[in-house]
Design a protein around this nucleic acid. Sequence first.
DNA 1: CTGCGTGCAAAACGTTTGCAACTTG
DNA 2: CAAGTTGCAAACGTTTTGCACGCAG
Lengths: 138, 138
Amino acid sequence: MLEVTEKLRQNNLKVTPQRIAIYNALCESRSHLSAESIYNYLRESYPTISLATVYKTLSTFIDTGLIQELNTSDGISKYDIVNDPHPHFVCNICKTLYDLPELKSMENVRNEIKDSTNFEIITEQIFLYGICDKCNEV
Amino acid sequence: MLEVTEKLRQNNLKVTPQRIAIYNALCESRSHLSAESIYNYLRESYPTISLATVYKTLSTFIDTGLIQELNTSDGISKYDIVNDPHPHFVCNICKTLYDLPELKSMENVRNEIKDSTNFEIITEQIFLYGICDKCNEV
DNA sequence: CTGCGTGCAAAACGTTTGCAACTTG
DNA sequence: CAAGTTGCAAACGTTTTGCACGCAG
C-alpha cells in the first residue's frame, strides 16, 4: 500500500497531521468507524482536533475517491477505505456492520448492469440485512 | 397484490386511515418517497396528518417487513415497498434514486453469500453510485 | 372499554457552516 | 505569501420523543 502522504499528494491535497491521522485510523481499524468514533479515537493523540475537521476531512476524502461512505439503517455514516470492493452485512438487532468476502459473481452483476443501463457506474455498495451469529445465539 | 387492509391485519396492525394512505402512497408512487414527501403528498387528502405519524407508521411498517428503508448518501431516508428485489442507482450529482431492473445474476450472488457466511440474511440492498444520463449530458 | 394510534410541540441527533487564526507548499 | 486547512460555536434539517386526546377492535 502507498504511503499516506503519497496518496494525499497524488490527489492534490495538502498533507496535514490531521489528514494523516484520519486516514491511518481508517486503515488500521478493523471495524467500520463513524465520524464520532474517529474523533474520539484521535483525541488521545491529537487533543485539539475537532469533530468539524473530521467531517470536513472525510468529505474531502470521499470527493477524491479515497474512502467510501456507508449509509445503513442506524442513521450513522460509517467510512471505509476504498480497496477491493466487498459486500457488507448489517445486523438488524445489534446494528453491527460486517465485511463479507469479495464475491466472484459480482463480476456478472456488474456486466449485467452495464448492459441494462447507460448510467456511468463509479462505485457499488451491497448491503445484506439480517441477524448476525451473536444475536442469533441469544 | 393483497388489499392493504388485509396486509395490515395479517401483521396485527390496527387499520387506520393514515396507515392505509401511507401504504397506498408508497405503492402508487413511481419515485422513491421520503417521509417529508409522503407527508406533503397526503396533506392534500388528510389535512390533519402529522409528520410524526408518518415517521411512526413507516417505522412500524419496517419492523413488520412491509417496507424497506433506503439510506443513501444524501442523508434523507427513502422508503420502498418490499416486492421483488432490485438494485438501485444513485446519481452522485443530482442525488436521484433510480430503480434498476432485477438482475438474473443476483441469484448467484445470494448463493455465494449463503455459502460464505452463516448469517441469516433477511433483505438485500444493492446501490450503484455514479452519474446519471441527465447529469452526464450537461 | 382498553390499548394502541394520532397529532402537536419540543427536543435530540448527526452533520454542516461561517469565520478568524493558523499551516502548508 | 497565497491558498487551503483547522477549530470553535452556532446553525441546520431530519428524525424522535412525551404526552394528551381519539379511535379501532
